[in-house]
Amino acid sequence: MLAHLVDLGDGAISVNMAKKDLLDDAGGVVSRAQGAWESAGLPDTGTVGV
């Protein structure tokens, strides 16, 4: 699965925005998005580097 994250200019986006983008890329399938998030080892809070 490929997630497209949007760079807001500072090289990082909020976790909430990244999760929304990933869910959109997963076609709205929550379990698929959650699995991808966990496999990538991304944090539960804060920001995600792009």
Rank of each mutant, 00 (worst) to 15 (best):
M1G: 06
L2Y: 00
A3D: 06
H4D: 01
H4F: 11
H4K: 09
L5S: 02
L5H: 00
L5W: 11
V6Q: 02
V6G: 04
D7C: 12
D7K: 11
L8D: 02
L8G: 10
L8C: 07
G9F: 15
G9V: 14
G9R: 02
D10E: 06
D10M: 13
G11R: 05
G11Q: 01
G11M: 05
A12Q: 04
A12K: 03
A12P: 02
I13A: 06
I13P: 00
I13H: 00
S14D: 01
S14A: 12
S14F: 13
V15H: 13
V15M: 05
V15I: 11
V15S: 05
V15L: 11
V15K: 02
N16A: 13
M17A: 15
M17W: 06
A18E: 05
A18Q: 03
A18Y: 12
K19N: 01
K19G: 04
K20F: 07
K20D: 01
K20T: 08
D21R: 06
D21C: 12
L22D: 08
L22S: 02
L23R: 01
L23V: 10
L23E: 05
A26I: 04
A26R: 03
G27K: 03
G27R: 01
G27W: 07
G28V: 13
G28H: 07
G28T: 09
V29W: 07
V29C: 06
V29K: 05
V29Q: 01
V30R: 01
S31N: 04
S31G: 09
S31A: 14
S31I: 15
S31K: 10
S31C: 10
A33C: 09
A33P: 02
Q34R: 11
Q34N: 09
Q34E: 13
G35F: 13
G35Y: 11
G35Q: 09
A36D: 05
A36N: 04
W37C: 07
W37Y: 13
E38N: 13
E38V: 15
S39A: 15
S39H: 10
S39G: 15
A40V: 15
A40R: 09
A40Q: 08
A40P: 09
A40W: 14
G41M: 11
G41R: 02
L42I: 08
P43V: 10
P43Q: 05
P43D: 02
P43W: 07
D44F: 02
T45Q: 08
T45I: 14
G46W: 12
G46E: 02
T47D: 00
T47F: 12
V48T: 03
V48N: 00
V48W: 10
V48Y: 03
G49K: 07
G49C: 09
V50Q: 01
V50W: 06
V50K: 03
